[in-house]
Design a protein around this nucleic acid. Sequence first.
DNA 1: AAGATGACTAGGT
DNA 2: GACCTAGCCATCT
Length: 109
Amino acid sequence: MNPFTAKTVQLIRSIPEGRVMTYGQVAAAAGNRRAARQVVRVLHSMSAAEQLPWHRIINAKGGISAPADAAGKGILQRDLLEAEGIVFREDGTVDLEACRWFPPDAEME
DNA sequence: AAGATGACTAGGT
DNA sequence: GACCTAGCCATCT
Protein backbone atom coordinates (compact mmCIF):
# COMPACT_ATOMS: atom_id res chain seq x y z
CA MET A 1 0.00 0.00 0.00
CA ASN A 2 1.51 3.31 -1.04
CA PRO A 3 1.73 6.38 1.21
CA PHE A 4 -1.00 8.17 -0.62
CA THR A 5 -3.43 5.34 -0.09
CA ALA A 6 -2.55 5.03 3.57
CA LYS A 7 -3.00 8.73 4.16
CA THR A 8 -6.23 8.73 2.23
CA VAL A 9 -7.70 5.92 4.29
CA GLN A 10 -6.62 7.55 7.50
CA LEU A 11 -8.10 10.83 6.36
CA ILE A 12 -11.42 9.40 5.36
CA ARG A 13 -11.67 7.49 8.58
CA SER A 14 -11.18 10.72 10.48
CA ILE A 15 -14.10 12.52 8.88
CA PRO A 16 -16.61 13.25 11.64
CA GLU A 17 -20.18 12.15 11.41
CA GLY A 18 -22.36 14.67 9.66
CA ARG A 19 -19.50 16.05 7.63
CA VAL A 20 -18.27 15.37 4.10
CA MET A 21 -15.21 15.89 1.93
CA THR A 22 -14.85 16.07 -1.83
CA TYR A 23 -12.64 13.68 -3.80
CA GLY A 24 -10.32 16.45 -4.79
CA GLN A 25 -10.13 17.72 -1.26
CA VAL A 26 -9.15 14.34 0.10
CA ALA A 27 -6.57 13.99 -2.64
CA ALA A 28 -5.10 17.38 -1.80
CA ALA A 29 -5.08 16.66 1.91
CA ALA A 30 -3.41 13.33 1.24
CA GLY A 31 -0.64 15.09 -0.58
CA ASN A 32 -1.56 15.02 -4.26
CA ARG A 33 -4.28 17.37 -5.35
CA ARG A 34 -4.44 15.84 -8.81
CA ALA A 35 -5.17 12.37 -7.52
CA ALA A 36 -8.93 12.57 -7.14
CA ARG A 37 -9.18 9.46 -9.27
CA GLN A 38 -6.83 7.58 -6.98
CA VAL A 39 -9.06 8.49 -4.06
CA VAL A 40 -11.83 6.85 -6.01
CA ARG A 41 -9.65 3.80 -6.50
CA VAL A 42 -9.08 3.59 -2.76
CA LEU A 43 -12.80 3.64 -2.14
CA HIS A 44 -13.23 0.89 -4.71
CA SER A 45 -10.89 -1.39 -2.87
CA MET A 46 -11.76 -0.38 0.67
CA SER A 47 -15.49 0.17 0.47
CA ALA A 48 -15.92 -3.34 1.83
CA ALA A 49 -14.34 -2.28 5.09
CA GLU A 50 -17.10 -0.88 7.24
CA GLN A 51 -14.55 1.17 9.06
CA LEU A 52 -14.25 3.38 6.03
CA PRO A 53 -17.04 5.97 5.83
CA TRP A 54 -16.82 6.08 2.04
CA HIS A 55 -20.24 7.71 1.89
CA ARG A 56 -18.80 10.91 3.32
CA ILE A 57 -16.90 11.43 0.09
CA ILE A 58 -18.84 13.33 -2.53
CA ASN A 59 -17.89 15.19 -5.70
CA ALA A 60 -16.93 18.82 -6.06
CA LYS A 61 -20.47 19.75 -7.02
CA GLY A 62 -21.74 18.54 -3.69
CA GLY A 63 -23.60 15.65 -5.26
CA ILE A 64 -23.38 11.87 -5.22
CA SER A 65 -21.16 10.30 -7.85
CA ALA A 66 -21.28 6.73 -6.68
CA PRO A 67 -23.49 4.28 -8.54
CA ALA A 68 -26.61 3.32 -6.64
CA ASP A 69 -25.25 -0.09 -5.81
CA ALA A 70 -21.87 1.09 -4.57
CA ALA A 71 -22.71 -0.02 -1.08
CA GLY A 72 -24.52 -3.08 -2.28
CA LYS A 73 -27.52 -4.31 -0.36
CA GLY A 74 -29.58 -1.56 -1.94
CA ILE A 75 -28.12 1.03 0.38
CA LEU A 76 -27.98 4.54 -1.02
CA GLN A 77 -25.12 6.86 -0.15
CA ARG A 78 -27.62 9.61 0.26
CA ASP A 79 -29.53 7.66 2.90
CA LEU A 80 -26.38 7.08 4.89
CA LEU A 81 -25.60 10.79 4.84
CA GLU A 82 -29.12 11.87 5.72
CA ALA A 83 -28.99 9.41 8.60
CA GLU A 84 -26.04 11.42 9.90
CA GLY A 85 -27.92 14.64 9.69
CA ILE A 86 -26.72 15.90 6.35
CA VAL A 87 -29.40 17.79 4.51
CA PHE A 88 -29.85 17.48 0.77
CA ARG A 89 -31.28 20.19 -1.43
CA GLU A 90 -34.02 19.50 -3.91
CA ASP A 91 -31.50 18.87 -6.65
CA GLY A 92 -29.85 16.17 -4.58
CA THR A 93 -26.77 18.14 -3.59
CA VAL A 94 -25.51 19.13 -0.16
CA ASP A 95 -24.37 22.52 1.01
CA LEU A 96 -20.61 22.10 0.78
CA GLU A 97 -19.97 25.41 2.46
CA ALA A 98 -21.79 24.10 5.49
CA CYS A 99 -20.93 20.40 5.53
CA ARG A 100 -17.45 20.25 4.06
CA TRP A 101 -14.91 19.27 6.66
CA PHE A 102 -11.29 20.33 6.76
CA PRO A 103 -8.93 17.89 8.45
CA PRO A 104 -6.97 19.72 11.19
CA ASP A 105 -3.69 17.92 10.59
CA ALA A 106 -3.72 17.86 6.83
CA GLU A 107 -0.96 19.52 4.92
CA MET A 108 -2.79 21.52 2.31
CA GLU A 109 -0.33 22.63 -0.29
C1' DA B 1 3.98 -2.00 -24.54
C1' DA B 2 -0.09 0.94 -26.03
C1' DG B 3 -4.72 2.14 -25.35
C1' DA B 4 -8.90 2.31 -22.53
C1' DT B 5 -11.03 3.32 -18.02
C1' DG B 6 -12.95 5.70 -13.95
C1' DA B 7 -17.67 6.98 -7.49
C1' DC B 8 -12.96 13.43 -10.56
C1' DT B 9 -12.03 18.69 -11.67
C1' DA B 10 -11.41 23.13 -13.48
C1' DG B 11 -12.13 26.06 -17.11
C1' DG B 12 -14.37 27.50 -21.40
C1' DT B 13 -18.77 27.98 -24.44
C1' DG C 1 -26.84 26.95 -15.39
C1' DA C 2 -26.21 23.00 -18.65
C1' DC C 3 -22.78 21.00 -21.68
C1' DC C 4 -18.15 20.07 -23.58
C1' DT C 5 -13.11 19.61 -23.33
C1' DA C 6 -8.86 18.81 -21.69
C1' DG C 7 -6.07 17.44 -17.77
C1' DC C 8 -5.22 13.93 -14.36
C1' DC C 9 -2.84 9.20 -12.88
C1' DA C 10 -2.87 4.34 -11.07
C1' DT C 11 -4.89 0.01 -13.00
C1' DC C 12 -6.56 -3.09 -16.26
C1' DT C 13 -6.93 -5.11 -21.02
